[in-house]
Design a protein around this nucleic acid. Structure first.
Length: 557
RNA sequence: GCCCUCGUAGCUCAGUGGAUAGAGCAUCCCCCUCCUAAGGGGAGGGUCACACGUUCGAUUCGUGUCGAGGGCGCCA
């Protein structure tokens, strides 16, 4: 509908001002229904360059505008807005569009290449090290990352979800030492406990399972504990498998599945690390100082150079990161999005710098980043800082157990990622109007209820003429539904799934308002079917929108 | 000190170079003989942190100030 109007406007605009470009014409959705379905600031924009009165220009534009089967009227308003009001034919067209192919309504092909094929995009998210249960920050990353994946798929991209983790390195040594200490019944109050060790209760569980010679399923393999109290290698393998397994269960409970798990150690084993270091050195971006090998990241906008190989001969995390992103590029991902906590901010410049220094034509903006800010968990008016199992932080599992998967996902994805989030457990738990998740789900369930009571075949609604749906609420409802595809595109372009959550709240509000005002199951058959087709279309949009957030759309509540 | 993000109603947060800046909660009033009241309607509540610029028009863009958080490691 929007492109239809643009096609009408463009020739007119060009006849007045030949140099105007198609993408410079704005066609917005007015906030208020009084201002029509679409609004253009064309006259005001032209007034500036042509030095003419915007209202006069608007009159001229409207006179020149060809007739359209979908437009009821065009009006000038305010300082020179041109407002378009769609007619009943357009509204029927929109509703039929939704009902015809419910599951694809809102989808587009903006992710396709020139040949019409989906382009590959990889989204890396969560990427927690296997040193403890997932915390709420990982939960926010999981909710945002998975929703982004769903959104991009809806926009025609071929999406791969990936989880990267470090299974060697200093943090894992720490984990091993901590479990080892607990095997010997050394607790964190004991001076013999590792200084930077993990102090949570889960370490005791792992130690006990290890001593009992348990087995753990992890990523298709079974890991057996040797049970030998000083077998550090077995402790390490078992602990990593144990925690990876637990994280998988948490993600499962959060209804998130990954396509690929990548281990940091794989880049040491397959020689990628050496290759990258050799290439960086060959390109002349490295130097030695204080017995360490440095990369001149300042050549690429960093504020200081970074160590890549420590004086003890081991690598910093930074080189495996570069190797990993080089690997993503080589696997054919011309687009990569990393979802991380905002504490990863400092790595952006240097990872990109490392990739630039490889000189193999990777774009400067590769990879893209979506960073989320910190979460404060509130309960009973007080900040919750720790959980029993993890010790020092609140786990994702705590939230899921307490408020459920749907509410947790919704709350974590419904805020702009770069603002700090207060997660109010009491609010997320309430099952009433205070809680936006239930508000939206209730709208969906209410519609399902009406359709159940009607008892007819929903396919009967596909070709209903809705011409005489003309109440303000009905106009608002149709307008809202027609905006959904634009919202989906916008959310994907901006990498901002929270805009979908806002849209759904508005859409649900429109429905509840309509529901209270109008009876659907009326005597008059035409009226009844018209209203049912409208709410059925609303149900579809709510369902598709909730799907994009990873939230269920219940038939009953 | 430098870098990034944020500052909008009492609270939690949306939003936009344009029309009267929105929603939920909280406060007050009203609506079930009627498809789910887990709902709806209404009232009150704002110097869009502050200042100065750019613009026909700034809450939105720019600069500065103040305030909050995060990052500045041979940790990941």
């Amino acid at each position: 509908m929007k492109s239809h109007l643009l096609q009408l406007l463009l020739p007119v605009a060009q006849s007045i001002h030949p140099e105007i470009l198609a993408n410079s014409i704005q066609l917005d959705r007015p906030k208020s229904i009084e201002h029509g379905d679409f609004s253009s600031n064309l006259a005001m924009a032209l007034a500036k360059t042509l030095k003419k009165n915007p209202r006069e220009l608007a009159t001229l534009i409207i006179e020149k505008l060809p007739t359209s089967p979908f437009i009821e009227k065009v009006e000038i308003a305010g300082a020179g807005f041109i407002n378009f009001y769609l007619n009943e034919k357009a509204r029927t067209f929109i509703i039929h569009e939704i009902l015809k192919n419910p599951e694809v309504y809102g989808q587009n092909t903006s992710g396709h290449d020139d040949k019409g094929q989906p382009q590959k995009v990889q989204i890396e998210f969560v990427s927690a090290n296997p040193t403890g249960p997932l915390h709420v920050g990982h939960g926010r990353g999981a909710a945002i990352g998975d929703s982004l994946a769903r959104l991009l798929k809806f926009n025609g991209w071929d999406v791969t979800r990936e989880f990267y983790y470090n299974d060697a390195g200093a943090q894992i040594d720490n984990l091993t030492k901590s479990v080892h200490a607990r095997c010997h019944n050394i607790d964190p109050s004991d001076p013999a406990f590792p200084e930077d060790g993990y102090r949570g209760e889960y370490i005791v569980e792992i130690a006990n399972a290890f001593l009992n010679k348990s087995s753990i399923e992890c990523e298709g393999k079974t890991i057996h504990a040797s049970g030998l109290i000083d077998d550090l290698e077995s402790i390490r393998q078992f602990s990593v498998a144990y925690l990876r397994h637990e994280q998988d269960q948490d993600l499962n409970a959060f209804q998130i599945k990954f396509d690929v798990f990548t281990l940091e150690s794989s880049f040491y084993q397959n020689g990628h690390i050496e290759k990258v270091v050799a290439s960086l050195t060959q390109n002349g971006f490295t130097y030695e100082e204080d017995n360490a090998l440095w990369l001149k990241t300042t050549d690429f906008g960093d504020d200081k150079n970074r160590v890549m190989k420590k004086s003890d001969g081991s690598y910093t995390y930074f080189i495996p990161d570069v190797a990993y992103h080089f690997n993503k590029w080589e696997r054919g991902f011309k687009r990569v999005i990393n979802e991380h906590g905002s504490d990863h901010h400092s790595t952006i410049t240097r990872v990109r710098a490392g990739l630039q220094a490889l000189k193999i034509g990777i774009p400067e903006s590769y990879p893209e980043y979506v960073l989320h800010q910190m979460i404060t968990v509130m309960k009973g008016g007080e900040e919750v800082k720790l959980s029993k199992r993890a010790g020092s932080y609140v786990t994702l599992r705590d939230l899921i157990d307490e408020v459920g998967c749907d509410a947790t996902r919704f709350f974590l994805v419904a805020r702009k990622s770069d603002s700090q989030l207060i997660f109010d457990i009491d609010l997320a738990k309430t099952q009433n109007s205070d809680n936006p998740v239930y508000y939206i789900q209730y709208a969906h369930a209410r519609i399902a209820g009406v359709l159940r009571q009607w008892g007819g075949d929903i396919h009967q609604l596909n070709h209903v003429n809705i011409d005489h749906l003309k109440s303000t609420q009905e106009l608002i409802m149709v307008k809202r539904l027609s905006e959904f595809p634009e919202m989906v595109l916008h959310a994907a372009v901006e990498l901002a799934p929270h805009t979908i959550a806002n849209y759904l709240k508005d859409c649900a509000a429109d429905l509840h308002s309509y529901y209270n005002d109008t009876k659907f199951l009326v005597e008059n058959e035409d009226e009844k079917l018209a209203r049912l087709s409208l709410i059925r279309a609303t149900q579809i949009v709510l369902k598709n929108g909730l799907y994009l957030l990873g939230v269920n759309a219940p038939e009953n509540m």
